[in-house]
Amino acid sequence: MTKKSTRLVPMAGMVILLAGPLQVATVAAAEGASAVAEGKAISFKRSKGNCLACHMIEGGESPGNVGPPLIAMKARYPDKAKLRAQIFDATAFNPDSAMVPFGKHRILTEDEIDKVTEYIWTL
């Protein structure tokens, strides 16, 4: 009995040690998932991102084609910050860009742009 219990204590400790980071990781994943979901909602909403006015996005209805289809975003933008900057103010890279400067003109808040970036990066 005593032998068993002494062996159990370190085992329990290990379980706790393992569960700790695991729990943190799942919380972070849930947060990431909800950021992506919120980002998608903002991107699709006409009064917010309205990205579909100009971009084909998988799952989006009646898209325009003023801008390129938003696909393979991780390959096109290995650096997420660069993607965010394009969404914040496309005219910074191309003064004749037809893309709406969502951040510079305060159409989306900083937080909303973060979420949109998270979502677009999954495409």
Partner: peptide
């Protein structure tokens, strides 16, 4: 405007393309 377009952005630069379903 807040959306930062000129008349030419839509009717010159992007003419023939679609905003949603509207052909410019």
């Amino acid at each position: 405007g807040q959306l930062n377009f000129s008349c030419a952005t839509c009717h010159v630069q992007n003419t023939g393309l679609k905003v949603r379903t509207e052909v410019l």
